[in-house]
Design a protein around this nucleic acid. Sequence first.
RNA 1: GCCGAGGUGGUGGAAUUGGUAGACACGAGGGACUUAAAAUCCCUUGGAGAUAAAACUCUGUGCGGGUUCGAGUCCCGCCCUCGGCACCA
Length: 927
Amino acid sequence: MKEYKPKEIEPKWQKYWEDKELYKADDLSPKPKYYYLIEFPYPSAEGLHVGHPRSYTALDILARKKRMQGFNVLYPIGWDAFGLPAENYAIKTGTHPRVKTEENVQNFKRQLKALGYSFDWSREINTTDPQYYKWTQWIFLQLFKKNLAYKAKMDINWCTACNVGLANEEVVDGKCERCGGEVVRKEREQWLLKITEYADRLLADLDKVDYWEKIKKQQIDWIGKSYGAQVVFKIKSSTMLKGEHMYDLSVYTTRPDTLFGATFMAVAPEHELIEKFKHQIDNHEEVKDYVEQAKHKSELERTNLEKVKTGLELHGLKAINPVNDEEIPVFTADYVLATYGTGAVMAVPAHDQRDYEFAHKYNLPVKEVIRPYLLGALAGCDKAIEKEFKKLEIAYFYHEESSVYYIEADVKLKQSIFQLIKKYISPNYYADLWINGVIYIISQSDIFDLHDKKQFKKAQELVGAMEIPQEYADLKKIQKEWQDFIFDPIWDQVALPKAYESDGFLVNSEFLNGLGLQKATDKICDWLKKQGKGFRTTDYHLRDWVFSRQRYWGEPIPIIICPKCGYVPVPEDDLPVKLPEMKNYRTTKTGDSPLALAKDWLNVACPQCGSRSQRETDTMPQWAGSSWYFLRYVDPHNDQALADKDKLKYWTPVDWYNGGMEHTTLHLLYSRFWHKFLYDIKVVPTPEPYAKRTSHGFILGEDGEKMSKSRGNVINPDDVIKEYGADTFRVYIMFMGPFDQATPWNTQGVVGVRRFIEKVWQIGHNLDNKKRGNDDDLVRLTHKTIQQITKQTESLDLNTCVSAFMILINKYQEEGCNSENFELFLKIFAPLAPHVCEELWSNLGHQDSIFLEAWPEYDKRLVKATVKEIPVQINGKVRSKIFIAEDLAESAVKEKVLTDEKVKEWLQDKPIKQFIYVKDKIINIVI
RNA sequence: GCCGAGGUGGUGGAAUUGGUAGACACGAGGGACUUAAAAUCCCUUGGAGAUAAAACUCUGUGCGGGUUCGAGUCCCGCCCUCGGCACCA
């Protein structure tokens, strides 16, 4: 027998596959199509990370299987090659980023090929190829023409280390995502894309796609749609003349129902109000200082958790509450964001925690307008309970005369309050608590709901009929009494320990009094509309996408800035706007892109009027090229369009897209946005780019920590392939743990998988064809395994698939195996370990590749067992096991069980209370 | 603080979604082969107890309650770990 030498067989088969063009996808084939997509890598200088193969291997397995099932499969690869590392390297060494990138691509290619992936290499693309980015620029121009790309002066996140503007998404913990440098706010002209215009559709269309729920959830949260109202407060200044038109200050609120509780206004330091009223604000100098300070705070300081809220009153100004004409003070405070809503808020300290904190600090009134549904009087408890109320932040008031605690809390706290009372009550005493009008009697061990007849009776038995009169059971009567109780002035004495932000009854709100949150919201919105003082509206967390980078190594934005015509698009015939050759790749001192120094490239005539003009020097972010790459795979060499319409119609949408969880909010959202836009302008045939999206977990270092150079726990795929072979690597990476969870690397585990493959090799060379017969356990297990693998590969339960293969091989080893079974095994194992299976397949005398075989069907009869071993429990504990033939009637089963020796022993002569037989599962006898 | 995932042997992890907890693999211990080692093969391996040996008994899925004939799985209350977001009115 030959020794198993992956180093010899793997390159051999890789070459064979390539020569035979086995994985080339046919355009417009009559076969059903399937499009698998993995996130194309950034070709970094470090080479392939072990994280890449986790995703690539999983989809490679699925792609190989799908081809065997008769599908025309597209499984492409390319390079997301623009990006900072190549540029930083260029700055350091003077080498053009293209040179280094090309070198890295070659290295990646070598590594990926060594893993035997079934990519269709004829469709390889590269985002830095002018023939590719021509179309990235083309898409930008279409966006520009539809007014979805615009330039605006705005505060951007500016990394002080990279000297570059960053998108919100690239700022992590107030620091630059890439270099960790400090981020400050800086005003600059930036290109933005109006992704917010698509927010609603990006949200709604999640219903149309099959993404993992957690992925959908993240997108929903990121878009962050909220429902509320815009309300107009009039601003009045002390110097104002009678009859002079008052300024309208609009605020956005999600809680218009709390309008009567507004006790002050707060505007962002950037708000126009401050500039407009600079002559009316008495303390304008002081205010100016505050605004200036806020501006210079870094992103880190602004987002600092511990920060105490600061603000300053604008003296001389008052806002008028539209519902009751009450005059309230106006503040500026940097906890109000200029970029959300209208940049101004109505502050309701009683029902918003931030406003509560601010009011506390500046001694502003807290006016309660919502009473929780859960509140009540509690008699007969120890004073120790007060401490616990404070801990749970429950508002309470102790009434000396009646020795009753009046408490007020969120419904969520109901259970906690029960526990609390049970804990503090003395053994022979009973407390009564009123919640939502229902009375509960609470003892140390029990809680009785008096509305429940049975419980009422029990409570009466324990406490006595004197203590619990019959009328306590009359829910309607008690609830009416309780409603009045809510408006009892006693509550005005309760100091709120924090803002109450949930549902409840409106109080102190004139015409809203007594309503619940929803009804009050409806009523106040109608009222505002009628009065012309506000309207219902929605808002989003999602912001427009900052699309400018002041960098060299990116797609130039194809715009010409003409002194007469403004922003003029480069004519489509002139695309691509190629990056000019340069010697210096550093951002200029003024913060402009290095392209500003390429004089020959920079100066052009305006395409509209011919005036001397300049090109836009900003480049696009890395997200641009990756927002549409999956469309280019469909038709990668087309120079007339980004892809041919018929081909798009045939191949798209992507059927299954797998990638990192870290890309769900940025890349996934951006590319959905572009795709929807392309759909609107009739370039692509589907409204959604990806039918299905899954994610893989991280691979951690052997120490359980994230792999990083500095920790020295990085595993290099090259070393693993060299030592154990690509098949071992592939199988191990699937075996190591659940696909979607983070799992540490374990070299010992790799050794185990290698041993397993050696076993396969050995069996493949020692087949015993004397073993025959359909009823044979081996045949059964083989078919069961086919069933399991067919199903579980689709759900990405790949670790249990590997374990199923191991069980099968152990059985083969134990019992000997014939070639019929072994060939079936090879076919289903081939997608995981393609090289070794191909080799063994050809050893068995087959001329053609195993991947041209059809995926085996399992025999339904063989999968079903005719006799089953079933556990017998007595009082829930397993005491015996018996064999039962299929379809045996329950009475026969019972008879059989009762004659079992062990069962008899346990039963003795005790009477059987219950006999439970769950078919094919279990028997339980209760005695 | 909010959202998400998770907590099962010495380790990575299984468990048909309420039905024999610990599959499969690693590690460890013992044995066979060998002059020896490596490789390979065989046995043992959650914990405790019992026995000459086996059958056997108890206990056990982060903690405390509950529902159920039966709970790793469902409900209520807590604790811890990891990931994401973070003044979004």
